[in-house]
Design a protein around this nucleic acid. Structure first.
Ligand SMILES: [Zn+2]
Ligand SMILES: [Zn+2]
Ligand SMILES: [Zn+2]
Ligand SMILES: [Zn+2]
Lengths: 337, 337
DNA sequence: GTCGGTTCAATCGGTTCA
DNA sequence: TGAACCGATTGAACCGAC
């Protein structure tokens, strides 16, 4: 089954850079034999492939990534950037090594962005789940009457937020077979079958795929995976369930507010305004307290909602997460510009 | 949030255009008319036909299918979507490559849905199976009469054995929550709660755990795993389903017999005796023709019943990437028994 | 022959740790 | 810092339905 002795590399050795580095006298055209073409274009060490656009050794590969990510200005301690870079001298002047990396054509764009790396890490971690999770306990500072307020808020939270999600079991679920969504036919006809209308709707939405797991009291497990198509309609079978979830969660948040004495003391119209403006966000917050970043899953008692997509790296909102300016998306994925 | 830039380079970026052409095998000019038909409309590489509606190379064909199925928003790490896509640069920027695929007219509708792929795979598998099955009875010296009998039996089988198991979708399933089995209360009281009676029942039975997978027509998947306890009761939630299955399968086997002329010619009491003695075994045989030893699964159309590995780590087939399909089940294919 | 999907060795990103 | 490693992506070769 093995074939192709890599004809693709044949041209490599013939490449001549226009810059004058003839001082190095390293034989670039050593590709006459198959064994000879594996030379690091930066330091002359044995190369093992193209890294960031240039045939380099492992050392220069790692050095380039680290140096570029560190993003600091390096200065040549010796001469103005004329240090010779060889296998033995490459560690002596980072500035000249990095300069030569760039001159050789290594591209910083090929270094994965922090966001991409983070996502990739999360994905890999998720793939080998079935791991125990670390307990993330957190301590609090101290204050005075603030503590009383905090206590009241926490009590309200405890009273009105059923973290076992025991009512969720009564909510509608996707049909097992014939997953014809149960939307009214009017909606079906207009929304689902008219491409124009549909694409209008999908214009600003992000693709998401959610699987659901239901754990029975006897230890049994039901697991639902949405259709694998990706036209945006894969969420539809879950809509009745999500509607029930929303209704229930809204009630919970409203009850939360009503339990807080300071809220009750507000004028009724202020109460309404507050609820109108914040209830949805409160629901999201409540859900996200159940989110497990390791597994990309909302653990809601006997229910679990899991991002199915391999690109579903999520983070808890609220946790400081400004690693880079290039990062946007707080917790929504697929944020294609 | 993009997945990862993911670029691969096969060349040194500083290759001068006019120089490079002399190094590479052939320039990709469109000078040849017939040759023009054979160039990839995306990257200019040698194309080998129309793929997803556009003349492309193998690489762009595979890239388009994978990128679309991954359903990830890609972001160009270089200049905003202006990367030139050539045979040598196509791996540098997935975003621009995919954009060019779409601009060239590649259609994602022509990518088979997961469900369609699954169906196709099953079909191919079945045909392979039939191929292996054919030789044994085939050809060799059989009398006319024997061949006619075989034909009648096979016709009867085809007529009365729905290998798509389309009716199974109507059968009862374990309750999602509160998996209180639906046995009559009398049985519940006596069987389930009296340890003595229960252990008497379990005395000779083998512990078995069966998970069930249901694949919706829209590609969605429901998956049921029985309770993890091993007291023998874990099968109980499935009993209603199994009862429906048995009833249906019994009818199928009885119909099979009734289609056979020689059977119809028997005295009625003999017919009854035969059915009493063999119907159950026939059902087992029919089921086992659907058994896949690799996965330990009975593949029954949109249903699948899988032996749960007592040690865990058993997974339902579905989107599973089966490593290789070298060995086929030994005893299923009419060969055994 | 065409054109879907599948396979799998090779390639090249990031990660680990001495 | 870099050798060894991990794992996602790629594409040539292939398979099979039509
Ligand atoms: Zn080097
Ligand atoms: Zn220097
Ligand atoms: Zn191409
Ligand atoms: Zn680009």
């Amino acid at each position: 089954l093995e074939m192709r002795p890599e004809e693709r590399w044949n041209h490599v050795g013939l490449v001549q850079r226009e810059e004058a580095d003839s001082v190095l006298e390293e034989p670039i055209n050593v590709d006459e034999e198959d064994g000879g073409l594996q030379i690091c274009r930066v330091c002359g060490d044995k190369a093992n492939g193209y890294h960031f656009n240039v045939m380099t050794c492992e050392g220069c590969k790692g050095f380039f990534r680290r140096a570029m990510k560190r993003n600091v200005r390096l200065r040549c301690p010796f001469r103005k950037g004329t240090c010779e870079i060889t296998r033995k001298t490459r560690r002596q002047c980072q500035a000249c090594r990095l300069r030569k990396c760039l001159e050789s054509g290594m591209k910083k764009e090929m270094i994965m962005s922090d966001a991409a790396v983070e996502q990739r890490r999360a994905l890999i971690k998720r793939k080998k789940r079935e791991k125990i999770e670390a307990p993330p306990p957190g301590g609090q500072g101290l204050t005075e009457e603030q503590q009383a307020l905090i206590q009241e808020l926490m009590d309200a939270q405890m009273q009105t937020f059923d973290t076992t999600f025991s009512h969720f079991k009564d909510f509608r679920l996707p049909a097992v077979f014939h997953s014809d969504c149960e939307l009214p036919e009017v909606l079906q006809a207009s929304l689902l079958e008219d491409p124009a209308t549909w694409s209008q709707i999908m214009k600003d939405s992000v693709p998401m795929k959610i699987s659901v797991q239901l754990r029975g009291e006897d230890g049994s497990i039901w697991n639902y995976q949405p259709p694998s198509k990706s036209d945006g309609k894969e969420i539809i079978p879950l809509l009745p369930h999500l509607a029930d979830v929303s209704t229930y969660m809204f009630k919970g948040v409203i009850n939360f507010a009503k339990v807080i004495s300071h809220f009750r003391e507000l004028p009724i119209e202020d109460q309404i305004s507050l609820l109108k403006g914040a209830t949805f966000e409160m629901c999201i917050l409540r859900f996200n307290t159940m989110f497990d970043t390791e597994t990309g899953t909302w653990e809601c008692g006997r229910l679990a909602y899991c991002f199915e997509d391999p690109n579903g790296a999520q983070e808890m909102p609220g946790r400081g997460r400004e690693g880079k300016s290039s990062v946007r998306d707080p917790w929504v994925l697929g944020a294609g510009s």
